[in-house]
Every structure is written in C-alpha cells, then in structure tokens.
Simulated scan of single mutants.
Amino acid sequence: MDLQWLDDVLVLLEEGNMTRAAARRNITQPAFSRRIRGFENWLGTQVLTRAANSVEISPALGANEAEIRALIGRIRDLRGKIAHFDPASSTVSLAAQHASVISTYPDMALHAKRHFPSLKFRLRPGNLGDCVTMFLRGDAHILLCYEADNAAPLPFAGTIRRAFWGHDYLVPLVGGGLRYAVRDDGSLPVDAPAIVYPESSYFGEVLNASERPFGTQTFSNNAVCETAFSSGIKELVLNGMGVGWLPFSMSHKEIESGELISLANHMGRERLKIVLYADMQEQIAMSLLDIWSADRR
C-alpha cells in the first residue's frame, strides 16, 4: 500500500471533485484516477461510483475520514521511530524484587545514566515469582533479583544471560525502644517481638532454611507482624515494634546513625547475591548488563 494513496483520498474528500483533487495533487486527472483505483484494489472494494458523466464518492469513505487521518499519522510516526531509532533513548522495563527496588536499583540507574543519559526505565516491582513470570512473558526486558549465596542460578534457557551485580546481606536489626532490650552479648530475650517474613516469600525461605531466629513464624516466639515487604519491616523496626531481618544495603545509613542496631555479631547474617537476567536478543538489555558487570569488577 502506497501512503500517497491515503493522501489522495483525503484530498478527494476535501474537494469532493476529481478534477480539483488532481489539481491539488499536481497530477493529471487520469493519473489521479489510476491512483484511486490502486487504493481500491488494495482495499478490496470500490470507494467511487463511476458513471458516464459523473463520479460519486462512497459515503463509507467520508464516514471513515477521521480513521484515515489517524492511520496516516500512525504510519508516519512509525516511519520516524524506525528511521531515527536510538537504543540509548529507549524505555527499558525492569522486573525487580521489592527490596531491590530500594536497596539496589537506584545505584544501578545512576550507573546506566552515565552511559545512556536519555535512557528511561519502567520499574515493575513484585515478589520473585511474579518477577520471573513478567520476565518470561516478555513484559520486562531485565530481571533483577536476589539469590541465596549457596543457591544455583535460576534455570532459564541458554538464550538468557546472567550477570552479577554484587553481594548483600540479610541482617537482624532492632530500633526504637527495643534497642534497650539488647544484652551486652548482643542477644535478645527469646520472646522479643519480631516482624517476620512469610515462609513462602523468598527472604522467608532463605531465613527458614538457615533456622534464623526472629526470621519467620517457625523460629519466632512472638511474631507481632508478618509481611513480605522489606520497606514496611524497616519502618516497624525503626519504631521499635520488633526485631526484623533486612538487607544491609537498605539499612546501613540507619545502622551508622545508631537508629538501628545490628545483631549480626550474635545471630549471624545471610549473604545474598544480586543478579540480573536478560534475553540475549535484547540489544539495550545486553548493553546494560555489560555496563553493570564492568562497574562491579
């Protein structure tokens, strides 16, 4: 289909006359008529009723004038996007576990902006299962997630590339008035209130596997709140509502200021890998993985 056919049709609708329309298009009337026939052949139906001494325009053509104009606009917009495509100014969709959105993504975005100033991100947070589903479904170009330090990589196909960003740690923390319940050896009473993760959540699975106290319902005597949202746990811990396990990257500033006290020396910590996955066919995603991997060497 020739785009000029649509332009011809619009001029014909505006003029309502073949002779005047041909003149506006700077071609002869027979040539203009041939182009209208070309449009009819492509469309599969006639838009003109031709008699010996007259030509009538089909009412259906006029009724769809707005749609024809919109179609011309979309085609020209598509041409421009293809002709002037710049991967560095694309919008990249990134599926990320909730905690990593706060603890890791901001630093990664700053690194990316240094190389691709016009790059835009569409951030899609969720639990790990939802993030993997979004990534496999093609709703996200990149998957950002945590992996337990002793866990194997996610079992994706060979067309999916994995990159390593760095390490983080889940650490047990207290804040608010509960800080004064910490003993000299860094321990807490076993019935101290706890803000725990659901055992079905990723952090819950990690803490449960290591039998960490105050991590989940199973290993807490006084779980006052259960939630998979680390940012919510942080606020509750800061207000002294209970012990909570949080990524160190999310809480190091409050630890340094004294608002939070780490109990890692007594209870230990869980090391986590921060990893990225992307389809090798996604050019901009591959470029980002190259940058992020290089920046962490």
Rank of each mutant, 00 (worst) to 15 (best):
H111T: 13
W5Q: 12
M280E: 15
Q97E: 15
E235Y: 10
L12Q: 05
D8L: 08
R79I: 12
G268I: 06
A285W: 00
I160C: 12
P198T: 01
V55S: 09
R137P: 00
H266A: 13
H141T: 01
G175N: 01
G204L: 03
C145F: 13
R297Y: 13
E254F: 08
L154D: 02
F229V: 06
P189M: 03
I233S: 01
A223V: 11
L276W: 10
N64D: 12
K81T: 09
R161S: 14
I274E: 05
A152M: 09
G129C: 09
V224H: 03
A70H: 11
G186A: 08
G215D: 02
N127E: 14
L178V: 01
V171I: 14
M1W: 04
P155C: 10
R76W: 07
L78E: 11
L110E: 14
E147P: 01
T45Q: 13
R24I: 08
S262I: 03
T159E: 07
P87S: 09
I261T: 14
H111L: 15
R35E: 04
I233W: 00
P59G: 05
L170D: 00
A51T: 15
M280L: 13
N26F: 10
S93I: 02
M267I: 02
Q4E: 12
P198Q: 02
I102A: 15
L43W: 12
M108D: 00
T45E: 13
Q29H: 10
G16L: 02
E226Q: 12
D279P: 02
A31L: 12
V132Q: 09
H266V: 04
R20W: 06
S54C: 07
S249D: 05
G44H: 06
L276A: 09
T91G: 03
A22E: 02
D139A: 11
P172M: 05
E259V: 01
M280H: 07
E270I: 06
G126S: 05
R183V: 05
D279S: 06
P59L: 10
Q29N: 10
D191R: 12
F156S: 05
M267E: 01
F156P: 01
R212I: 10
F32M: 08
V275I: 12
A151D: 15
A181I: 03
Y197T: 02
Q97I: 14
A228M: 09
D86W: 01
S220C: 06
P189N: 03
P125W: 03
E65C: 08
F164D: 06
R114H: 11
R212D: 07
N239V: 03
D149T: 06
H111N: 09
D295Q: 12
L123P: 08
R124Y: 07
R212P: 02
G175I: 00
Q217V: 13
Y180W: 13
L289A: 07
S257P: 08
S293T: 15
C131L: 04
S220P: 03
A63E: 07
L238R: 08
N150W: 14
L207I: 01
A192H: 03
L119G: 06
L71E: 10
D290K: 08
E199R: 05
I36V: 15
F248K: 09
T133K: 15
D139G: 07
N208H: 12
D107Y: 13
R37W: 12
A63N: 05
P247W: 12
G44E: 07
G73S: 14
P193M: 08
I261M: 11
M1A: 10
G129A: 13
S54R: 13
E211L: 00
N150F: 14
